[in-house]
Design a protein around this nucleic acid. Structure first.
Lengths: 238, 238
DNA sequence: CGCTGAATTGAGTCACATCAAGAAGCGTGG
DNA sequence: CCACGCTTCTTGATGTGACTCAATTCAGCG
């Protein structure tokens, strides 16, 4: 594994406070791997053998049922994923696939669980992380249940612009079909919804979104700190 | 606090493995209180000062945005709730109100966090619990995104019958308006959806649901262990 | 009982999905 | 470097599940 990858992982809230002994031990047991775009990493129902950490690229966690499929989460580096399944030692509830060429570090779940038992600081960090993940899912459910598709889209656009440094213009970081599914709509609906927001503060140029009127867009989204987690490039929250 | 209440709490996965010293310490710092029906316990955005434990009665966790309101979770005894907010020491993302007369134990979040720092077994239990809560929320999001209202209702009815001991007939444990909101629909839609399921294995008598054909109903719900958590009266899972 | 909130029923509307066709990217290989 | 072909994206026409509004009916409770 590359040293710079380790450094990125070390920065994660999960590992920031952990002894370097614990950390190096886990890294020694881990694998780093590069995957091509649109590759399935694992499927829902598989045994949770590894904690995954996305170092570079992008990953979608999605779920399927009865022939339907929905994107549950879109991940950007550096992020760990499916921690809960590893802790519980239960099958994944979601499938994962790369959005683009991605490098991913895999920490064996057995080693992770052993390290947690040994290192109280790690246990505390995992606990804190899981509490945050739970709250993220609550936010997402609220988003789904309380907002319409159009409102969810507006909120996502604002969050995205914010995340990239409050820019007035940005490229969509994922394919529209995936974004649509993530937002709980069809690609066709997303296309129309984007079109419909032109009169509410955005302009479009292919995969580029230009925010022409923050206030109008914010009025559609009705930003709420108890739903939307605005992270700037630097800060954190939850 | 009544001794039998303590016994119930002691049975929770959260406290089952914890030293009696830790447990008694927490109980000594806690309050037990009886609330009338339909009373707001706290609102979203409030500071998370207490871990709540429902001993008797029923509680709905719900959320509001922009004038809309949605039930996120329906709770039955004995259950703890809003653990994540206490761990994170952040505002509640959901509001809570009693469904009926309920007795609730409140553990001060400061004391809880202190106990976790002191007692590794408690930390481990909290970690495990949060991982489970996270997975429950994932199931719920999958349910929302992948199933139609009708399918969600069918699945809920099956789960409910199962929970009460695989009975063929049971009373709805909550008001229909709350159930509707929990399932992501309006009361009118629930009423019609229940009617519509009459041809698929159920019969109705006011608040009583009679399952006349498990197979037909199961076919509508398309049970999936990665969405539906079937708990019988005794066992557990996640 | 009679009052009040809950549940049902009906009619009309709307948001979003579906189906289908065309346009635009984009990676591949000649 | 261009042409081909696949995929994604867009746009249009139509369908439908679910919401809204309104009017009863029903049930619980003082």
């Amino acid at each position: 594994m590359r040293e710079e990858d380790k450094a990125g992982i070390r920065e994660l809230p999960l590992f920031r406070e952990v002894s370097s002994e614990t950390f190096q031990g886990l890294m020694a047991a881990s694998y780093s791997q590069v995957f091509p775009p649109k590759l399935d990493l694992f499927g829902q129902g598989d045994r949770a053998d590894f904690l995954h950490i996305l170092i570079e690229g992008g990953v979608a966690l999605h779920a399927q049922w009865n022939g339907r499929d929905a994107v549950m989460t879109l991940l950007r580096p550096v992020s760990s994923f499916i921690l809960a399944a590893c802790i519980r030692d239960m099958p994944y509830l979601m499938s994962a696939r790369t959005l683009e060429r991605s490098t991913i570090v895999m920490i064996p779940a057995v080693d992770l669980r052993a390290a947690i038992r040994r290192d109280g600081d790690l246990a505390a960090a995992v606990m804190f992380e899981l509490a945050g993940s739970y709250r993220s899912m609550v936010r997402q459910s609220k988003n789904l249940k309380l907002r319409t598709a159009r409102e969810r889209l507006a909120a996502w656009l604002l969050a995205q612009a914010h995340r990239q440094g409050r820019v007035n213009s940005f490229l969509l970081p994922v394919e529209k079909r995936d974004l649509a599914s993530y937002l709980g709509m069809t690609p066709e609906s997303l296309s129309r919804a984007l079109g419909g927001l032109k009169s509410d503060g955005i302009a479009l140029d292919g995969a580029r979104v230009i925010i022409t009127d923050w206030n109008r867009l914010a009025a559609v989204a009705a930003y709420d700190p108890l739903i939307d987690k605005l992270i700037d490039k630097w800060g954190e929250d939850t």
